[in-house]
Write a protein that binds this DNA or RNA. Structure first.
Lengths: 206, 206
DNA sequence: AGACTAATAACCAATATTTCCGATACAAAT
DNA sequence: ATTTGTATCGGAAATATTGGTTATTAGTCT
C-alpha cells in the first residue's frame, strides 16, 4: 500500500487525480493540498511515501522551491514533479533541488501509477522526453583538441595551483607551464585561468 | 518494425537474446556481432534503428569506446548500453559518449523490448537503479551560504573578468569587488579565482 | 625525402592583476 | 546588542598575462 500525497493548485486536477489514485487497490491518496505552505507541516508530521508536486502554483512558493524546503527540513519521502513545463531549466532545477522524478501532465494514469511505484522502489521515473533531456545533458561537447599535456595542466589549473606549483607537480619549468597555458587559452578562446576553468567545466572536459 | 542490432561477446547471450527479440511481432534482430570491430562497417553501411551494446567485450574495443567510435563516424541509430556493471563511472562515461540508455543484464525481456521501443521513439530507457543514479548526480551539494551579491561576483569571475571589469558590471568599486572575493574565498575555502570557479561548478552553484 | 605543423620544453622581460594584510562604515537582520 | 552583508580605502608582495625567441621530436602531407 503506497501512501501518495498531491500538491496541486487546480482543484479539478487535484481532486480528480487524487480520486483516481485513491481508487487503485495498492494506493491511497488522502493527503491533498493546494499549496506548499499548507502542505508543509502536515507532510512533515505525517509523511507520505511519495509526493506528486506541481511546479506552477498560485501561492508564493512554487514547486521547485517547495522541493528545496522539504529537503532542507529533512523530509524523507520521494518527490515526483508534475508539470506542463518541459524546459530544461525547470527540469534540472527540480532534480538539483532533490526531486527523484519528473512527469509531464499529459502522462496517462497507468504510467503515473507505475511511476509512483518506481519512485517508491528507489527508481527515478521520468516522462520519455524528460529522460532524454537529462541524458543529453551529459553529452560531451567539442574537445578543443587539447593535447594530453595541456589537459593535465588544465586539471592543475582547476585545482587553483600557481604556475610554479603546476611546474613542480608535472616536473617541468614554470616557463613551460606558461607556454602550455598560453596554448590552452588560444584553443579555448579565453584569457584567464578562471575563464579557462569555467569553459572546461561547461564543455565537460573536467 | 524496429530493426535491432546486438554487439555482445558471449555467444549464448547474443544468440538467445537475438532470437527472442527476432521472434517478436514488431522487432527484427538479424544483425548480431561479437565485437565493435566486426560490427563497425556493417552497421555504418546498413544501420539498424537501435543497437544493444555490451560494455565488457573480449576484443580490444570495449563498449564505451564503441559508442564514441560510432558517434564520431556519424552513426545515427540509438545506442542502449547493456551491462552487468552498475558503477557510476561506466554509466556516465557511456552517456557522455552518446548512449541514450542503459540497461542492466538482469532486465526481463518485456522491459528490454519496451526500452528498445522507447529509445526508438526518442526516449532514454534506463534500469530503475541506473536512472536514480543519473538523477542523483544532479543533487546540489551545500550552498556555502553565499550572499546574492557574492553569487553575482562569482558568476562574473567565471566569465574571466578582472576585478575592475566586475566592478564596472556591478556598479561597485574595485575595492568592494576585492572584499567580496575575499569573502567568497573564505566561504568556499579556496584561494584563487580558478579554484573558486572549479568549486562552484563542482557544487553546482554555477 | 623534404616541407610543414603540432606538441613539448625552455628562456627573458614588461606590464597587469590578484592576493593578503590591515581598517572603517552603515543598514538590516537576529 | 551582536552579527552579517554590503560598501569603501591603502599598501605590499605575489602571481598572471602577454610579448618575443629557440629547440627537439613526432607525425602529416605532398
Amino acid at each position: 500500500m503506497i501512501d501518495v500525497a498531491i500538491i496541486e493548485d487546480d482543484q479539478d486536477i487535484r481532486e480528480y487525480l487524487g480520486m483516481l489514485i485513491d481508487r487503485q487497490p495498492d494506493f491511497s491518496c488522502s493527503k491533498r493540498f493546494y499549496s506548499v505552505e499548507s502542505a508543509m507541516e502536515p507532510l512533515l508530521i505525517n509523511p507520505p511515501d511519495v509526493l506528486l508536486l506541481d511546479i506552477t502554483l498560485s501561492e508564493n512558493t512554487n514547486g521547485i522551491q517547495g522541493v528545496s524546503q522539504f529537503v532542507e527540513r529533512g523530509a524523507s519521502f520521494e518527490i515526483i514533479m508534475f508539470s506542463v513545463h518541459q524546459d530544461d531549466e525547470k527540469i534540472f532545477q527540480s532534480l538539483c533541488a532533490g526531486a527523484c522524478g519528473y512527469l509531464t501532465k499529459n502522462t496517462p494514469l497507468p504510467k503515473i501509477l507505475s511511476s509512483i511505484k518506481e519512485a517508491h522502489q528507489g527508481g527515478a521515473p521520468m516522462s520519455m522526453e524528460i529522460a532524454r533531456r537529462v541524458v543529453q545533458s551529459f553529452r560531451s561537447t567539442p574537445n578543443f583538441d587539447l593535447s594530453p599535456r595541456e589537459k593535465e595542466v588544465l586539471l592543475e589549473l582547476s585545482r587553483g595551483k600557481s604556475y610554479r606549483k603546476i611546474g613542480e607537480s608535472l616536473f617541468i619549468s614554470e616557463d613551460t607551464v606558461r607556454a602550455h597555458i598560453r596554448n590552452i587559452y588560444r584553443k579555448l578562446e579565453v584569457n584567464s585561468k578562471a575563464e579557462a576553468v569555467a569553459k572546461a567545466y561547461q564543455s565537460r572536459l573536467l
